[in-house]
Nucleic acid binder design. Structure first.
Lengths: 350, 350
DNA sequence: TTTTGCACTCGGCTGACGAGAGTGCTAAAT
DNA sequence: ATTTAGCACTCTCGTCAGCCGAGTGCAAAA
């Protein structure tokens, strides 16, 4: 949630100075003082003047000093102003776009596509990337197929919601012929395809009980089989993360304990997931800066997300997680374009 | 590689003392001094005597002091003696065995089985676990199946080496009917099943060129399709890791830089993989202590591995990675039994 | 309104110092 | 001959003082 605040109206000069300060700080991470700023900006001002201006900015809550007599650093609110009004994102150079495109084109299945997207993202941003897997609200059975393996092992292929494919090997009491399996799958497809998985499951149970005696052996077999296959259906993992180690390079994360907490929350997924879900109905890139995320472990982190969509329908969210002091001007367009390209990559296979 | 050394012959008392020291150190990680040892062992000796003995042990290279006037800690050689001759592994209590069994039974596919094995291992050891995926030396095509999805999308299912199942969705130039696809898969299965994937690939190319004109449209289609499916065949990931964050809890790993290097080598996989492959032809549990591994990043780590096998044939290796100061008496039997149970779990689906 | 000058503050580095833990050696005791 | 007691010595760790440098805030001058 962006901190609600009256629109900040500042003299042009202060803004310029502020931007210079943030740029500087993002660059090398040290608190920046008046002298440095006087030297490095083209506005011809003495350190003293700059000190005055910085004092004003501090009063507005845009800056703070880590301690008396260090320079100033931006607050979350400061970063917010920065990304909202001051930041000029420069376009990606075509080599990078190409690199992204290359990772996303080839004809891979969904899961590995998302995996590659994620590792590509963390690779070029040198930060942690996260790609939320499409959460199929109500998975719909699209197609069932049986393939005989050796002996009494049967491979069940479930195609769910037109995208996800699940394989499961099940053991059957007796050996079934190919044609028997064919008939079984025909039956299942005819009766159940297009229905939600949960419904399929309950109906299967129902059917099994009701027609226990008079149903043909084959149907029984088919139902049992499908039921077995539907058991323990949930996939369990809801996003992929890459590049965690990148966080260990950033100076802000030098404290092991902090790092541990952060990593732990990556594993627990709950908080991160909740955060991602907030972005799922946003349009375009969304940014959570520092404490705006509402989770303490992420206090020194910013999250830049964007939903990705196919046919105007949002499938999921991807983004990167890094220190608040990150190169927003680079990260934002990267996230943006990746989301778009992922969307169209998914589209072309549809 | 175990350090080659003449068998150490020590008076019983020294050994007892040594074991007590290692136990103590493993327990709480502080260098242990003569006084503590005098207090906590049942041999009635004065600190001075113990100091003498410890000096001897240090001369033998089994102990060292981090600095003058700290207690002693075991060296890698010391740990080696400890695990080889002094360690008494206590059996796992049945609740733990049950827990392991529960994770490994249910009818999941291979990949998720290995995943769960890994996360289970890291969970109960509170260390990093690694499970090497079965490296199929020469993957053999067992079965191909085509399933029509909507329009011109076709799902290709490859069953490789009787275990691994790969799905791939490909786009075709025109729409094929179910029976066409059926025929195509029949053809492919007849001609290629049982052959190694690499061979299949080259033969397909060959076939495609040779019979370009006079081959039936269908065959062409089948071959193209299969070729598309075989492209980019390698899975890419060769082991699964879990529980990295556990390492951040152990006191020895308080240094971020060290930790980073370690994590990085987890990602690069090369070294770890090489290490695992050394164990692949060992029988039973194998242990690398500290520098024995030969990789600098692992200097303060021990690796406990065991191959897992089906029908007497070794499929892969699993194990755990932790600080040299780990509870070998717990970890060793856990790794051992997990490998065995994973083996039989894989067997039952075979 | 901006700049100059100046006193003040604070973090980080350094070096000193004492406490605590543990050792090695020697001499006494068993 | 082995074990123990005594003692001086060494090294780490934590604390504390002192100094330096960077940077601030304020008041007075430009």
């Amino acid at each position: 949630m962006p901190l609600s605040t009256e629109p900040i109206q500042l003299p042009e000069r202060s803004l310029q100075l502020f931007k210079a300060l943030v740029d500087h700080f993002i660059q090398d991470g040290h608190p920046v003082g008046s002298r440095t700023l006087a030297r490095d900006t083209n506005l011809e001002l003495s350190p003293a003047t700059i000190r005055n201006i910085m004092a004003d900015l501090e009063d507005l809550g845009l800056l703070r000093s880590p301690h008396t007599s260090a320079g100033r650093i931006p607050t979350a609110k400061g970063y917010r102003l920065f990304v909202d009004s001051l930041l000029c994102v420069h376009d990606l150079d075509s080599s990078e776009i190409e690199k992204i495109a290359k990772e996303l084109d080839s004809g891979q299945d969904m899961k590995s596509l998302l995996n590659r997207t994620s590792s590509m993202l963390s690779d070029i941003t040198r930060l942690v990337s996260v790609v939320m897997l499409p959460r199929s609200d109500q998975p719909v059975l699209q197609h069932v197929e049986f393939v005989t393996l050796s002996d009494n092992r049967v491979l069940v292929i479930l195609i769910v919601s037109d995208r996800e494919i699940q394989n499961r090997i099940i053991h059957t009491a007796r050996v079934y012929s190919a044609s028997e399996l064919q008939q079984a799958s025909n039956y299942l497809n005819k009766v159940f395809s297009g229905k939600e998985l949960t419904k399929v499951r309950t109906e299967l149970i129902h059917e099994l009980e009701q027609m226990k005696d008079n149903v043909s052996q084959l149907m029984q077999m088919a139902i049992e089989m499908a039921q077995k296959a539907f058991m323990s259906g949930e996939s369990g993992d809801d996003y992929v993360l890459s590049g965690q180690t990148n966080l260990m390079n950033v100076a802000e994360m030098c404290d092991v304990e902090k790092l541990r907490k952060l990593f732990e929350s990556f594993n627990q997924k709950r908080d991160i997931l909740h955060l991602l879900e907030q972005s799922i109905h946003a349009t375009g890139v969304q940014i959570f800066i520092g404490e705006e995320s509402g989770y303490e472990v992420l206090d020194d982190c910013s999250i830049v997300t964007s939903p990705y969509e196919v046919d105007g329908q949002i499938l999921g969210v991807l983004g990167i997680i890094g220190p608040t002091r990150m190169h927003y001007d680079r990260v934002i367009p990267i996230v943006d374009i990746t989301a778009k390209m992922l969307g169209s990559a998914l589209n072309s296979r549809n």
